[in-house]
Amino acid sequence: MNDYTKKVIKIIKSIPSGKTMSYGDIAKTAGKNRGAREVSRILHSCSEKYGLPWHRVINSQGKISLSGEAGQFQREMLEQEGIRFDKNGKINEVYINKGRDSNANKERRKKRS
């Protein structure tokens, strides 16, 4: 297992109950600004083996990416942890952990504008 995968697993395991984190923010925190798809692959292949709280990982829009019964199951698991959704299925910002590097990234974007 490479270092990046180890970091991703550690970050996912650290997402507390009642919080979520996006694939992209996990990737950035682990050191890859454009690694959301790789996080998805790691999550899919390692969740069961490492007991990852897969249900706490959401997309960049603050929504559940899974559809059908799997998406409904994820939503139910999050609601059991106290997470609330708006009428469009978006998770309230208060329940989203932006990760370690998000403030630094926001400052860099402001400077570029």
Rank of each mutant, 00 (worst) to 15 (best):
N2F: 08
D3N: 12
D3L: 13
Y4S: 00
T5S: 12
K13E: 00
K13V: 00
P16A: 06
K19F: 14
S22P: 02
Y23P: 02
D25C: 08
T29W: 11
A30Y: 08
A30Q: 01
K32G: 02
N33C: 05
G35L: 04
G35E: 01
E38C: 07
L43C: 15
H44I: 07
S45V: 15
C46R: 08
S47M: 09
K49H: 04
G51V: 08
P53K: 03
H55E: 05
R56D: 01
V57H: 02
I58E: 02
Q61V: 01
G62H: 01
S65D: 02
E69C: 03
A70H: 12
Q72P: 03
Q72F: 07
F73H: 15
F73C: 15
Q74W: 00
Q74A: 06
E76N: 12
G82V: 06
I83N: 02
D86R: 08
K87D: 11
K87G: 07
N88L: 10
N88P: 02
I91D: 04
N92R: 13
N92G: 10
N92P: 03
R100F: 09
S102F: 15
N103V: 10
N105R: 10
K106Q: 06
K111H: 15
R112I: 11
S113M: 14
S113Y: 13
